[in-house]
């Protein structure tokens, strides 16, 4: 976490692609700088002694409640398709998937 910049321009470019965000060079440079400053700030967590401390992913100790296996009905197809930017009345349409499985 310490040492050189936590996030450089190349790193930012990689993260932007992973996050599927089209950013221009200006934005990339801005974010790289800002994120680097933030990452340097959060590096203070290294001061904590966390030996044997479990992480908290839910604030309150809850148990997963389940639901009975019952049908509660689906939406009319038109209701959900009509919200899509492109559809053919039966499917959502997207630019052709490259390297699809």
């Amino acid at each position: 976490m310490s040492g050189g910049p936590a996030l450089d321009l190349e790193g930012a470019r990689r993260i932007a692609r992973l996050a599927r965000l089209a950013l221009d060079e200006q934005e990339l440079a801005l974010f790289a700088g800002q994120l680097d400053a933030i990452l340097r700030y959060v590096a203070q967590l290294e001061e904590l002694s966390l030996e044997g401390i479990e992480g908290t992913s839910h604030a309150l100790a809850l148990e997963c409640r389940t639901r009975p296996d019952e049908l509660s009905g689906s939406s009319p197809r038109e209701e959900l398709l009509s919200r899509a930017p492109a559809q053919d009345g039966e499917h959502f349409l997207v630019p052709r998937v490259v390297g699809h499985e």
Binding site: E70, S72, S74, S75, R77, L80, E90, H91, F92
Partner: peptide, 28 residues
Amino acid sequence: TASKIFCGCETSFGAPPNTHLCPVCSGQ
């Protein structure tokens, strides 16, 4: 199962496309 893992839509095979869909499983 009769219903999907996280919502009450049907799981059966071969239905017309996008008819076993609700706000939950369509990720609204």
